[in-house]
Design a protein around this nucleic acid. Structure first.
Lengths: 203, 203
DNA sequence: TGTACATCAGTGAACGCGCGTTCACTGATGTAC
DNA sequence: TGTACATCAGTGAACGCGCGTTCACTGATGTAC
């Protein structure tokens, strides 16, 4: 541990970056700050991530992977009634739960200008995550028809907007117009409406 | 014009800031850059906006006002069939059209950490803009019931997520899975689904 | 099992840059009388 | 209509700061023989 070589600096830097994200916000996340937080000289990160974009992209990729985990965990917990609609709904719940649990990270993941989308690891992790809102049928995932695609994009738009507005605090402003409204109940109610977005042929 | 006093520096600075936003992206928008773009010394903005947050907040407020204009213009253009659903749909179309026309500005408007929401002008402009997704009935706007509020938040989430994912380029990634898909037609199709989100009692 | 050497991982001083802010200033405008 | 003076709007030099990057370096690890 106290040796010259750290042993697992990449992982330590990602963890440090996430701490900063959560504690100080996305604006405070710099290469030097991450190195400082990890207790390492500020030139060390370059050996592993190249530049700041590289570090942020790796962090975002990890975020997308964990977003997928959140969604799958939510679906597994309700495995009992595993209809397709229920599964999609569970994934949506996981999506929103992830955004609320890691708002800074979630924002970073959708701040494209700071990420390098040509990195295969990032692209793959992101695609994996939002493909969860596709029907589980493998054939459709590989080669979806226009209707299936529209269904997915509709779900994604809805759930993504819900998550974004929520972690941005916009809901509480509006919800305050109705005194006594329970935010948790409201979110559950809104999430439930997702299935209504499906194309006519699915109903 | 060439006189010592500018005459309308606040407006010129806002215009300059917007130029930078569109041309160089949100990361390049600084107090000094805005002053430079407006052809004025870099200490001049402080007289009018205090600090960078003040300038950005004023710019965002102007953005929200114009977002409302976009939405109303879209509704006026289709005034012929002015059912409430159609009006809400027109407002949603305007919302998305604004985001596509001014992506940088739209992003700034939803980057809360850089804005000062305690400024009444900003808060009011933002509220005006998203209240457009409420039914026009004045009584409901003043004192909405939980159902009406949920309808509005559902619409807002959907339209907002759609706009965000769209200007972030995520749709083109997904849509490329279906060769020959027409993005414009897809967006129109998705926007049309917004009305399906309304609570049972409205249907 | 040793030894030589290449490679890898981290250090710390130094650099230039653009940033926001402060400061003393100056030119233009408005207002009291 | 003049004049004095306060206030407002903009200038430009200077500052300290944190940033990313470069550089020569050193300690640790792995590998060829």
């Amino acid at each position: 541990m106290a040796s010259y070589h750290h042993g697992s600096l990449p992982a330590a830097l990602l963890a440090a970056a996430e701490t900063i994200l959560q504690r100080d916000g996305i604006g405070a996340l710099t290469l030097r700050a991450a190195a400082r937080e990890a207790g390492v000289s500020h030139t060390a990160p370059a050996h592993h991530f190249g530049d700041l974009t590289g570090l942020l992209s790796a962090l975002a990729a990890s975020g997308f992977a964990r977003l997928s985990d959140f969604a799958r965990a939510e679906a597994d917990a309700k495995k009992s009634n595993g209809g397709e609609k229920n599964q999609l709904l569970a994934h949506a719940r996981g999506y929103v739960a992830f955004a609320r649990a890691h708002p800074g990270l979630f924002q970073l993941m959708f701040r494209s200008e700071r990420l390098d989308w040509s990195l295969p690891a990032l692209e793959r992790a992101a695609r994996d995550a939002y493909t969860l809102l596709m029907p589980a049928t493998e054939a459709l995932q590989a080669k979806p028809d226009a209707e299936t695609l529209a269904d997915m994009l509709a779900r994604w738009s809805y759930v993504h907007g819900l998550a974004m507005l929520l972690i941005d605090g916009r809901f509480s402003v509006s919800a305050s117009m109705v005194p006594g409204a329970d935010e948790e109940a409201l979110i559950a109610e809104l999430l439930g409406r997702m299935v209504w977005l499906d194309g006519e042929t699915d109903n």
